[in-house]
């Protein structure tokens, strides 16, 4: 995991230096049987490319959509997905956990 985090950040910088808008999503809290550790990163570019993971694959699509908003308006956001959230069921976080994600723009 440690290595992949570096790769994600390296990719984020590469995108930024190539002039792309970039957002970084970070898992800042987990509850229950979440499959990811706090600190896991997902980097998203303004052309919807992404690297890394914040959930083992269940909610990346939704996080990418939010990340594009963050790239557009520069306002950081806190997102929360879990079993109590119908949306999370719909997008597949069926592992019984809850995850809190912070999304920020790389300036």
């Amino acid at each position: 995991m440690a290595e992949s985090a570096t790769d994600v950040l390296a990719q984020a910088r590469q995108w930024r230096e190539a002039g792309k808008g970039v957002a970084l999503a970070t898992v800042v809290g987990t509850w229950g049987s979440s499959p990811v550790q706090a600190g896991s990163h997902l980097a998203v570019s303004d052309d919807s490319a992404f690297v890394g993971s914040v959930s083992g694959g269940c909610i990346e699509g939704a996080v990418v959509t939010e990340a594009l908003q963050v790239i557009a308006d520069g306002r950081p956001r806190q997102l929360e997905y879990g079993v109590t959230d119908e949306m999370a069921w719909a997008i597949g976080l069926a592992c019984g956990g809850k995850v809190q994600i912070y999304v920020e723009r790389v300036e």
Binding site: T6, L9, R16, L24, T26, P76, E104, V106
Partner: peptide, 29 residues
């Protein structure tokens, strides 16, 4: 996140120095 912080984190990683980023979630500082 400032691009400069990202660069500093990557530099620390390359030199195997520990580093941490503290983020105040309310305002992103």
């Amino acid at each position: 996140m400032k691009l400069d912080y990202l660069a500093q984190i990557l530099a620390a990683r390359a030199q195997k120095r520990p580093i941490a980023l503290a983020t105040r979630l309310a305002d992103g500082a």
